[in-house]
Write a protein that binds this DNA or RNA. Sequence first.
DNA 1: CCGCATCCGCCATGATACTG
DNA 2: CAGTATCATGGCGGATGCGG
Lengths: 119, 119
Amino acid sequence: MEHTSTDCKELFLSMQDFGDLWSGKWKIQIILYLSINKHKPVFFTQMRNDIIGISAKMLSKELKTMEMNQLITRIVHATNPVTVEYRITAHGETFAPVAQTMILWSVGHRRLILNSFPS
Amino acid sequence: MEHTSTDCKELFLSMQDFGDLWSGKWKIQIILYLSINKHKPVFFTQMRNDIIGISAKMLSKELKTMEMNQLITRIVHATNPVTVEYRITAHGETFAPVAQTMILWSVGHRRLILNSFPS
DNA sequence: CCGCATCCGCCATGATACTG
DNA sequence: CAGTATCATGGCGGATGCGG
């Protein structure tokens, strides 16, 4: 690739990546949770309790892929028993406005659809 | 709760809705395709050919739910054999900037990740 | 041409129990 | 506390063929 502009293929691949990364039920909630709580340490069990409905398996799996994508950082504390803290990275925070855009659109969409089918 | 502002529950439900609506592999591609081609009539088979990899079943199913969500319009032409034209709605077009935000973020993310694992 | 029906494999998610 | 192992399941999505 000798040019820096965004070609069609890169757009397409990025779109694919976006779906692969954010398609599940939980990652957006997790990143927003960590974004909101970025000024205090967040530990595994606390997250599991605060994010209603998520299982330990899912939370663990999502956190792992989010760490691989450099959205969050994992910090092991040598307490007894061990505790693990999670923090949002600077890169992870760049997603917050994207999530906000998505959610804002969805709020409007939800209202429109609910109005169309008055219950 | 007596206020009309967006409360936490509505935010949460909207986020859920967003995932339910856009989680599949195809809908974002479809809406962008219809947005790009909004000035010329788009028919079923042409879409299926242009959106690489999609099957007729998937395209049909996605178009149906997108129509229910008032993102697109279905127009049956009484030709022989029948042809069906699809158009993006005004509401559907409001999603284009959201998609653009998502894609822009993803392009940056993709470059960052690719740089971290130089092949 | 459009789209539905059927069958089927695979994957995401969930429930529960268990380990260091 | 912070996960992992195991099993179950529901839905996504592909392949194929039928009907209008």
